[in-house]
């Protein structure tokens, strides 16, 4: 099954829970089968599947909680302070895989998911835009804010 492992990995990152991730993936495939007639040939199949998964997550209990408790990025435009850590120390932190995984898990869902789509799935900005249903310009600004937030989270962990 193409995409199965990646979709599962993505679902587990979103839900942070194995059984919720399994429910989410299962529901995604069920919806995909049911809605396949609505899938337009020539559009991006991967983005379509991720979009179903993500929309299913957002309407689930933990998903709506995750998106409700986090401010949307456009609203907290300037709330991220610049990091004072040097690039070297950030690099040391990011090379510690577990610390980076914890930092990613702590990010608000909109930041976590866009980093996964860009750096793990290596989606183009257009694919990310199709998946998340946001304009391409927002993809760019959200990505740079997500990366800044990740650096900030890492530099906080370095100080502890």
């Amino acid at each position: 099954m193409p995409l199965f492992s990646q979709l599962y990995n993505f679902a587990h990152w979103l839900t942070q829970d194995r059984s919720e991730a399994e429910d989410l993936v299962q529901e995604t495939y069920v919806k995909a089968l049911r809605g396949f007639s609505g899938f337009q040939q020539g559009t991006n199949f991967r983005a379509w599947m991720y979009r179903i998964l993500r929309n299913t997550f957002l309407t689930s209990r933990s998903g709506s909680k995750a998106s409700a408790t986090r401010p949307l990025e456009e609203e907290d435009q300037e709330q991220l302070p610049a990091t004072e850590e040097t690039p070297e120390s950030i690099f040391i932190a990011s090379s510690q895989k577990e610390m980076l995984q914890n930092a990613l898990a702590e990010l608000p869902v909109p930041f976590r998911e866009i980093l996964l789509l860009c750096d793990f799935e290596e989606m183009s900005y257009q694919e990310i835009s199709d998946t998340l249903g946001i304009p391409a310009g927002t993809v760019m600004s959200r990505l740079s804010r997500a990366r800044r937030a990740l650096r900030l989270t890492l530099s906080k962990k370095l100080k502890v």
Partner: peptide, 20 residues
């Protein structure tokens, strides 16, 4: 250089969960 390293680190760190 820092950003490239971070991208690579994210890629490797985000491959975290295997389905049963």
């Amino acid at each position: 250089l820092g950003r490239v390293q971070m991208k690579r680190a994210i890629k490797s760190a985000s491959q975290r969960y295997e389905p049963r």
